[in-house]
């Protein structure tokens, strides 16, 4: 059997179960919509549209995440085969990590990771 067949099944099952669950409330619960009830939750002044610009810090984090996550993936592949690669592989990955370390130091120095 293709080992991804159960994955497909669970995906479909999760989607169907989740949809049924979230639609269940429509049929079981009371339905009395009113303008006030359908406002977003707020304590104080009622909110405006929130789809505005967010702090750039979050996007920096996302970009840095991609860089370092790719590094982790490379490390996984090396870790799986490193017993056959020996010292050669070790040296190679050290060079790779050193290059990334330079980038990391630059990121820290430039203040991209400061949250205040």
């Amino acid at each position: 059997m293709n080992p991804y067949l159960p994955v497909l099944f669970i995906f479909v099952f999760g989607a169907v179960f989740g949809t049924i669950m979230s639609l269940l409330a429509k049929f079981l619960g009371p339905r009395k919509a009113s303008a006030v009830k359908q406002q977003v939750f707020e304590c104080g002044v009622s909110g405006d549209d929130t789809r505005v610009r967010m702090s750039v810090k979050f996007y920096m984090t996302a970009i840095l995440f991609i860089l370092f996550d790719i590094e982790t993936i490379f490390l996984f592949l090396w870790a799986r085969t490193f017993q056959t690669l020996g010292w050669f592989g070790f040296g190679e990955i050290m060079v790779f990590m050193a290059i990334l370390l330079v980038g990391y130091i630059y990121v820290v120095k430039s203040g991209a990771l400061e949250w205040d």
């Binding site: 949809t19 979230s22 269940l24 409330a25 429509k26 079981l28 619960g29 009371p30 339905r31 009395k32 919509a33 303008a35 009830k37 359908q38 406002q39 977003v40 939750f41 549209d49």
Partner: peptide
Amino acid sequence: LIFKEESVPASAHKLLFQ
């Protein structure tokens, strides 16, 4: 919880909310 009324904010994105 199951028998509670569900309130979807009027300004929400309906599809993504579901």
